[in-house]
Amino acid sequence: MRKQTLSLAAVAAGAALALSACGGVQTTAGGGSDSGDYPTGSVNMPVGASAGGSSDLISRQVSRGLSEELGGSFPVINREGANGALAAAEVAKAEPDGSTISVQNASLFAITPLAVPEDQVTSIDDFDVVQGVSRDDYVLVASKGSGFDSIESFQDADGKVTYGTTGVGTGAQLACALTFNVNDTPAEAIPFDGGAPALTALLGDQVDTACLQVGEAIENIRSGKILPIVVFGPERVEFLPDVPTAQESGLDVEVAQYRFMTVPKGTPQDVKDSIAEAMQATFETSEYQDFNEQNNLTPMEISGDEVVTQLEEDKQRYADLVEEYGIDLGDAS
């Protein structure tokens, strides 16, 4: 009986392989495109974050816009893991025909390489960047119990200042680490798994300060439960007009998270153009603009080439700063 089972399995496997040679497998109802009328079928949008995070929400918003502008469906597939490296790997090895596209975040390319071993670094060279999307600013906030309200007040700290971060290799960690190093304040990083636990610890006075994304912190800033100290963007944040930037406070620290649309290297130009045009049209809709406002996102709707330039610049700048101050983000060695 066992023999029968095995031979059956062998036949089945053979038949299955023959079928696969015809190339009919799909995860959704259609395929990519090789002509101008993009898309011909549905387009996968892997996102390297779990459902509910800002990367996921932005991907879903863009996906809605694309399917309204171009027709067809653009299902978002959560492929979380390794700060987006798993999703990135999937896009990099996908067919370069526009059937797989992905909104990716800058920290994976500019900051994560400083924290992980060489062989886990994701390079932007594996992708074509189509279009910038939006920027998510970081803010340094202090708990009420800590007594800190500005960069200067850190001088009065007795002992080490503790700061919560949203994880290793994130912009939040880099921003905080740079701030305390540049300001010469003795400090200890307490990594949490994401923004919500870090905020909880801050509200409960478990840590003195934390670096968070503006959207995560804003409601508790408004109700006065935590105090904003600086923001880390190039200019002040629209949603927190009274909070100075780090540069204004005399610290040469600028860290931001931004997201952009990528396709596998070698995707035809007309496909990239279609996507970029559809995205720009989406950016014009009031629904999309409301979304940005609700999530405290600053539009960063620059071209793909500008994104790449900025990425290379940021990566170099971060690497120099980290080296200059001897900051140890993780296990990069």
């Binding site: 079928l19 009919g24 497998v25 799909q26 995860t27 959704t28 109802a29 259609g30």
Partner: peptide
């Protein structure tokens, strides 16, 4: 509407 790999569309 889970993206499960499938043959029959």
């Amino acid at each position: 509407s889970v993206p499960l790999p499938h043959l029959i569309a």
